[in-house]
Design a protein around this nucleic acid. Sequence first.
DNA 1: CTAGCATTTCCTGCTT
DNA 2: GAAGCAGGAAATGCTA
Length: 252
Amino acid sequence: MWQETHPQFWTKFQVWEWLQQTFDIHQMDAMYIPFQNFDIDGGQLCMMTFQDFNRMAGHAGPLLYHSLMELMWNGTGHSGNGPLVSGNNKTQIHELPGQLSFKEENCFYDCTDTELFNCKEPFQTTEDHNSPTPASQEEKKQHIRGQRTPIKKHSPRGTHLWEFIRDILLNPDRNPGLIKWEDRTEGVFRFLKSEAVAQLWGKKKNNSSMTYEKLSRAMRYYYKREILERVDGRRLVYKFGRNARGWRECEK
DNA sequence: CTAGCATTTCCTGCTT
DNA sequence: GAAGCAGGAAATGCTA
């Protein structure tokens, strides 16, 4: 759990989880998470400057930067640790290496999801894309209180099973041979470690009794909705359908 | 509180 | 026989 570790010590996978969680909380579509640009561990993440975040995450940069700073200085729930720095350094967006200064900027809250980093929205399938982020207010509140209970939203919005699968596929570095593309351009993929994926999914849903058997039932329901297309004859093989978005290389 | 969605859980039957 | 696949039916958890 990345929440229990200082960002400095996160593994690449935890960085990934943090990215996902942060997007979830701000109700931003997970498909816009610039995973490719965050193929780094916590140590490297903490060395990123504000500019780095903007460059690597576009409009989501400020939000991510702020979130990370919060976690770095306000602690992560972990052993009672207050700000590691005395007197809050006043805002300054300057390159902070490894640790140190960070700002309190409010301007960083302005990020209203919808189309992060210039992603044109060629579709408007499912959910979200409404609520102009009330998140900012929440955050400010927590700010005033000077503390933050790390993020535990009860509802993982925007993260459906197929998106979860897609995200694993899109991040080979964090995908220890769990699922593999069979035909990248056609959207055909195969589960290599079906039970492991089920466990991961269960972990995400806080359901320790998840199994591939049950996960696959949910996958089969996607056929009717055309989020997945049937691939018969081949075990553990699925294919994204016309209603699945964000898996193609070009629309990433 | 009610609907509806997206699974989750369980199950029977069939296939590989 | 084990592991998957197909779907139906019902139960759940959550959000609008």
